[in-house]
Amino acid sequence: MIIKINNKDYDLNIDPNMPLLWVLRDILGLTGTKYGCGVGDCGSCMVLVDSVARKSCILPVSQIVGKSITTIEGLSSDASHIVQKAWIEAGVPQCGYCQPGQIMSAVGLLIAIPKPTDDDINNAMSANICRCGTYSRIRAAIHIAAKG
């Protein structure tokens, strides 16, 4: 099975039912994508599947064959992606554990809606939990990123 992660093809011989999350973390060593619940409740595991934010913990790897996956590691190698820069400017992270997932949701949102309203942000970002409570700063960072 050939899958494309961050513009790189990987030929893997694995259980096609394995959720993408564990392929990323345990097989490919891409541990930026986090496990928070494994059942789609928290958004820690968010990745982009062809530009749409999806929860990788409930996404069997077989379903992404032929699609292009972007993980947090694929956004940039130097924190230069506009959303990463906005996150740094707003100083969003507390523990930081949810933040890769939050950022991937935000990237997906900004691809779909380049100038999101607060309601758009509520809709797109409510799949993600931040147990540290950084929501105000996430909202601020998304507005910063949208300004460009």
Binding site: E73, D78, G91, V92
Partner: peptide, 21 residues
């Protein structure tokens, strides 16, 4: 000052316990 390792966190580079290799 925000947490000093903000850039690493937003790149997914920070190693949490769960990320040990």
């Amino acid at each position: 000052k925000p947490v000093f390792d903000c850039a690493d966190i937003v790149m997914g580079k920070t190693e949490f316990g769960i990320d040990a290799k």
